[in-house]
């Protein structure tokens, strides 16, 4: 396949995944702020912007953090090039540019998703409609992923689609954990204060993991097992371990197809060392924040190496 097309596919799936993750983060934030006072709500919205890396852009033309303003900025603001709407539009533009690499089913899912969101996001989203809109974003992204899974040939194109998805997903999980990492520090649990479990609940919700976690832990909540679940559990599809298992699988597939490995395989192995065989204790010992920063850096390094190895640009 063409290098340009590989790049288009890779980023198309990154954008779709990012749009979905953003919707999930907003939904969790929204739910949280419903039960909080103004000050705390404002803090929560600020942390949503930090997680998305949009705080500076937002601050440039806002002076307070209200749900309506933050959601409008994140979802559809013209002054935000990273808005969910733009993300979907870019995904669609890439799908159009790579039209002959994807199936009719995938094209229709992305094109219809874009049309749906274009209509939903044509006007500011009212509070009463927020959940409906966020639900639509998740649904459209899910449909595109489902169409990919159900209709695409398992060839090179599919590898780039999967790698884009999981690089982005690992990045999102890392960002969410990093903004809230202080809530997971075990020391807090030892202090014996009344724990704000709703904050933990919020983290799980923003990663769609609340149900799985409760089921696995019979409803008990503690920082250690949460960190273990979100970072290391190979069964949870948003854990870093899971993301990297899929990423590794697809990189290996490419190495086999091309009969050679590249810089991305080296970068992948380096990242693996940081994750493989680790327990949650090891990670806490190293420092959770430090661990997450290093992980994000190696995640970005793998992404760059993929672009180079597979000739995304001349």
């Amino acid at each position: 396949m063409l290098g340009r097309v590989a790049e288009g596919i890779f980023w198309m799936y990154r954008y779709l995944e990012r749009a979905e993750n953003t919707a999930r983060l907003l939904a969790a934030g929204h739910r949280m702020t419903l039960t909080r006072g103004q000050e705390e709500a404002s803090q929560e919205w600020r942390s949503v912007l930090t997680t998305l890396g949009l705080l500076n852009a937002y601050d440039a033309d806002h002076d307070s953090y209200t749900g309506a303003q933050v959601c409008d900025f994140v979802l559809r603001s013209k002054s935000n090039p990273e808005s969910v709407y733009n993300m979907f539009e870019r995904a669609r533009t890439n799908a159009r540019a790579c039209r002959s690499a994807i199936t009719m089913e995938v094209w229709e899912a992305v094109n219809e998703g874009w049309m749906t969101l274009r209509d939903l996001l044509a006007r500011p989203v009212r509070d009463a409609n927020l959940n409906q809109v966020l639900g639509a974003i998740r649904r459209e992204s899910t449909l595109a992923r489902g169409a990919t899974h159900g209709s695409m040939l398992r060839n090179e194109v599919y590898c780039f689609a999967r790698m884009g998805t999981f690089i982005e997903r690992a990045d999102a999980t890392t960002r969410i954990l990093d903004v809230k990492y202080y809530l997971l520090l075990p020391s807090l649990a030892y202090v014996g204060t009344v724990l704000d479990t709703s904050q933990w609940d919020n983290i799980l919700r923003s990663l769609s993991g609340e149900r799985a976690y409760r089921w696995l832990n019979a409803g008990r909540m503690d920082a250690r097992s949460m960190a273990d679940f979100l970072i290391l559990d190979p069964r949870f599809p948003r854990s870093l371990t899971f993301c990297y298992a899929t990423l590794r699988e697809n990189l290996n597939e490419l190495a086999q197809l091309h009969g050679r490995e590249g810089k991305s395989h080296v970068a992948m192995r380096e990242a693996d060392v940081k994750l493989a065989g680790k327990t949650v204790e090891d990670i806490f010992e190293q420092g959770l924040h430090q661990f997450l920063i290093e992980f994000r850096n190696s995640n970005a390094a793998i992404s760059t190496a993929i672009a180079e190895d597979y000739r995304f640009i001349p």
């Binding site: 396949m1 063409l2 290098g3 340009r4 090179e156 091309h258 000739r311 001349p314």
Partner: peptide, 17 residues
Amino acid sequence: SDLRIVDGKVQMRTTDG
């Protein structure tokens, strides 16, 4: 932008060269 002349042929840049 995908094409270039290599060894006297028009060639396209694929993920594998």
